[in-house]
């Protein structure tokens, strides 16, 4: 028994090293003065400076952020509606198809989702002239479609874990169903909605393949720009960009973890 736990411990150590050594090395080399990404040329923060002077990077980052904010909000609204429909409305016609369509985008390979949406947009353009051009709008629609699936799943699992008698009690006390949704259900699933919003935001910000399919000329998101650069190999300014993203995400996740732990301690 002792031996097996030593085996488990070493696999755990290896696994976490495997997950984090690459990230650490990116952070380390982002402070490398040398243009050759893997030859150490002394400590420097010059790549961070260049990053902020690069209009292309700033433009695409701004586009990505605008898309991600819109997507996260739309996906949270639609996903919450879908999650409620699947847990609280009982049986309705077409429910099986609905729940199938909710979960499928999560498991669909990105190349298929991307290709199919692009072909839809092209066909629509031929038929009704919309969308006239591809970019912000088409990327937002594409991202919303798969991001809402994640929100729906999170909301659904929260709702099914939640006691339905709370809502029944509110109705018993005279609340009309729609009133009850806003007074009881939504406040109770707010944490799930926030988690869903954050996930949708991250997924949108992160997506490369689907964006590549459905965007048009001139509209390039941050991952698309990064991809076009890293195709050619490792570059120090991408190291700097990666470091900023890693630090931003890590601190965000750690703060969220810390807050939720404190909240748990207070209630528990």
């Amino acid at each position: 028994m002792k031996r097996r736990s030593r085996f488990i411990l070493s696999v755990l150590a290896f696994g976490y090293a495997f997950l984090y050594v690459p990230l650490a090395s990116v952070i380390f080399y982002s402070f490398n003065d040398s243009r050759l990404a893997t030859v150490w040329g002394g400590f420097s923060t010059r790549w961070y400076g260049e990053l902020f002077r690069n209009d292309q990077v700033l433009d695409s980052a701004f586009l990505s952020l605008r898309i991600a904010l819109t997507v996260a909000t739309l996906a949270t609204i639609f996903g919450t509606m879908a999650g409620m429909a699947l847990t609280r409305f009982g049986r309705f016609r077409g429910r099986t198809l609905f729940s199938g369509m909710i979960t499928s985008p999560m498991v669909m390979p990105e190349v298929i989702t991307g290709l199919s949406l692009l072909l839809l947009f092209v066909s629509l353009q031929q038929l009704i002239g919309w969308p006239a051009q591809r970019g912000f709008g088409t990327i937002t629609i594409a991202h919303t479609t798969f991001a809402m699936a994640y929100v729906a799943i999170i909301v659904q699992s929260r709702l099914s874990a939640m006691d339905e008698s709370l809502e029944e009690a509110a109705m018993d006390l005279g609340g009309r169903p729609l009133r009850v949704v806003f007074d009881i259900t939504l406040p109770l699933i707010a944490p799930a909605m926030i988690a869903g919003w954050l996930l949708a935001f991250t997924l949108s910000l992160d997506d490369l393949v689907i964006s590549s399919f459905v965007s048009g000329p001139g509209a390039s998101t941050l991952p698309m720009l990064i991809f076009s650069k890293v195709k050619l190999g490792v570059t120090p300014d991408i190291n700097a960009l990666a470091t900023l993203i890693i630090l931003f995400v890590t601190s965000g996740v750690l703060i969220a973890w810390w807050i939720s732990r404190r909240a748990q301690r207070q209630t528990g």
């Binding site: 690459p22 990230l23 090395s25 990404a37 990064i226 890293v230 490792v234 993203i245 995400v249 996740v253």
Partner: peptide, 25 residues
């Protein structure tokens, strides 16, 4: 948390990180 954390960091950048590790140099 440490398992989930990389999931929130850009997929593309995580693949990119390996380019820096696996290079000939």
């Amino acid at each position: 948390l440490l398992i989930v954390l990389p999931f929130w960091i850009s997929f593309l950048l995580r693949v990119y990180a390996w380019m820096g590790l696996l290079n000939n140099h």
